[in-house]
Design a protein around this nucleic acid. Structure first.
Lengths: 200, 200
DNA sequence: TGTACATCAGTGAACGCGCGTTCACTGATGTAC
DNA sequence: TGTACATCAGTGAACGCGCGTTCACTGATGTAC
């Protein structure tokens, strides 16, 4: 096996980089990403502060990397899960997928939730774009309509995604065994929002 | 008129205190409350850093004062507006009231929105309690049922309030003349959430 | 395979800076008599 | 009304601290021949 496409050096760099992102997620769960310092993250990541610059130009770039490489990935996963169960079942499938995410990586969930209305305009923009993608996928899954990449997703679909995230936030406040509680009412609310239009 | 209940000294202190809160709101609109410093706020508020302590023990206390004395007041106002138009019209009335708030004090709206998922657990707790109050008021206004102070508000009412705030956040991203656009779809979504239960 | 050179992640010392906080003091306002 | 004292918001000097950033250097790994 001499066909390594990545060298040991590159692997190691990748590992340290991932450590830094994970350290930032862990620390920001306590006091918010905005209050994190480069030195603090470097310390937690096991490198000298000056080495930070080998991986990111500043904390904002680290945050954007978390969004692009973690948040976005999970949100696309959620969209695929919804699309895999077309029609009405897509809603419950989406909620289940979100709950699984919650259990697997609560820190990433917290980060995503907080930065959606956080201090950084760049973070907000990135996260909202991802959220719009998820809303489109949800709309397509429920309605069967092909998504229109030019126009914004339907309002109801965006609202549904917002409620989904809010629900995750609420669940995070509960101890893990009680997190299932919010699942049912959330599904009901999402059904109400997304069911085909009818007179009100 | 020698019956002044407040002295000039107390008036002046109150004025400086209000200045500090307003300065914090203005500054936090740019980069978030968590990144604000006591010195920065004092500077903007027109006093020496050391004078800050005459008004607040630290920045967290200032933030809590903003929530208690501004955020909470406005949210109660919103609840009253909804209750003043019982039944279905309460929804549009609530949305209109929120839009008026938005126009009158966008900085307070931004602060409230951001800190609901912000870094400070104390802020989150306070804001969520106020939000639950508003949800109760909305439920009472729409359904006519007396609120039950012991149990949490109905899920749909809480979800409606969340969407209301999200809608405000979206509106804030638009230039003022275009802010009306999101009003109609929001009202439709809230109606769907809040209308009496029926088979799905 | 061995050798000479290039690359580059990691480092420690050092910098200037703004921070939160303490302290003792000032002076205008309020209060008691 | 006048006087003597109390209160207390505001202040400037000073402190120690952790921050982001720069710099020149080290040494392991990768590459060319």
């Amino acid at each position: 096996m001499r066909l390594r496409v990545t060298s040991a050096k590159k692997d190691e760099k990748e590992r340290v980089r991932a450590n830094l992102m994970r350290a930032a997620l862990q620390l920001s769960a306590a006091h918010g990403f905005a209050s994190l310092g480069l030195r603090e993250v470097s310390r937690e990541g096991g490198i000298a502060p000056t080495s930070f610059y080998r991986h990111f130009a500043d904390m904002q770039e680290l945050g954007l990397a978390i969004i692009r490489e973690h948040s976005a990935r999970v949100q696309r996963e959620l969209g695929e899960r919804a699309l895999a169960a077309p029609g009405a079942p897509a809603i419950a499938e989406l909620v289940d997928a979100a709950w699984e995410w919650l259990a697997r990586d609560p820190e990433l969930m917290l980060f995503t939730l907080a930065e959606r209305h956080g201090a950084s305009a760049a973070f907000r923009e990135q996260l909202r774009a991802e959220l719009a993608l998820l809303a489109r996928a949800l709309h397509q899954a429920v309605s069967g309509e092909k998504p229109d990449a030019k126009s914004p997703p339907p309002f109801a679909a965006e609202a549904a995604v917002v409620l989904l995230f809010e629900g995750c936030g609420r669940a995070l406040d509960e101890a893990p065994p009680r997190r299932g509680k919010a699942r049912e009412p959330l599904i009901v609310a999402l059904r109400r929002l997304l069911e085909p239009a009818r007179p009100l």
